[in-house]
Design a protein around this nucleic acid. Structure first.
Ligand SMILES: [Mn+2]
Ligand SMILES: [Mn+2]
Ligand SMILES: [Zn+2]
Ligand SMILES: [Zn+2]
Lengths: 139, 139
DNA sequence: CATAAAAAGCAACAATGTTGCAAAATAGAT
DNA sequence: ATCTATTTTGCAACATTGTTGCTTTTTATG
């Protein structure tokens, strides 16, 4: 685990710092996606709010994590499993939000479908967010 | 126009008030979707922030408008064109966010595709958000 | 016009996000 | 191991966004 964390940071030429390590660890050990708030709560040690924002921004830019749009004013973040890189994300999977446990999951195996847009629109990227009840909550 | 507004409010058994009328008017006369902030800015008369929040909530509940998820912490709202009703929205169209003009559009004719989820997930509803450059900005 | 019910406004507050700058930590070279 | 340039953090101050309870105003209706 500590290995993985170091690797990810080195691979992206980011210096190893306590907050980056901790936040990465949270992502690695967490099933679902995390919001900024989740991270502030889950990180036992208290990092400054600003540090968390900046870390999330850096990670997103580097292609370590990606954002997931929501309708509740709380963007979620999740690890990129494909090999996304500086500036270019290319995970094209569907996300799932559980209405019961409120968790957000990456459905890594469900690829986003092709969508045919009307003439004149230049498409760069599609997000699909499914809502319902997750596996855990349903049984 | 004033006609339409009155109709919509009456049809949903909402009383006619200045803020509701103004906000509806904004939606009717605007091409794209509006965020809470857009509304505060565009409404010439100043309505209390709280009133705007409550109005948007009421409209959403009644099925007059629907929300559009985003990754920028600013949910957008747009008129429901299908006949959504109290509690149940059923517009299933794709949304488009222009990276240039930042506007969000309902692509009313582009229906959300069916998505096959892994075993165990109960699906209730799918959101598709496409990003790119809109017609206006592209020409 | 009177009245009950609904909505708006206000105040106070909580949560979220941003910026500039000084202090601390890190990486890399001696 | 120590020094040093560079990067990152924490802090302070602030801006924006969202929420709640309560009072006043407005609306619908007889
Ligand atoms: Mn994902
Ligand atoms: Mn729409
Ligand atoms: Zn769940
Ligand atoms: Zn545009």
């Amino acid at each position: 685990m500590k290995e993985d964390i170091t690797n990810i940071l080195k691979r992206n030429s980011l210096s190893l710092t306590a907050s980056r390590e901790k936040i990465l660890q949270l992502f690695l050990s967490n099933d679902g996606a995390l919001s900024h708030g989740d991270i502030e709560k889950k990180a036992g040690e208290r990092f400054d709010r600003v540090t968390v924002y900046r870390t999330l921004q850096t990670f997103t830019e580097k292609g370590i994590i990606h954002t997931i749009p929501t309708a509740d004013n709380a963007v979620r973040y999740a690890l990129c499993k494909d090999n996304c890189s500086e500036g270019h994300h290319h995970d094209h999977h569907v996300h799932f939000i559980c209405q019961q446990c409120k968790q957000t999951f990456c459905l890594d195996d469900v690829v986003t479908p092709d969508i045919k847009l009307p003439r004149g629109y230049a498409l760069s990227h599609i997000e699909v967010v499914a809502e319902g009840v997750c596996r855990q909550c349903k049984r």
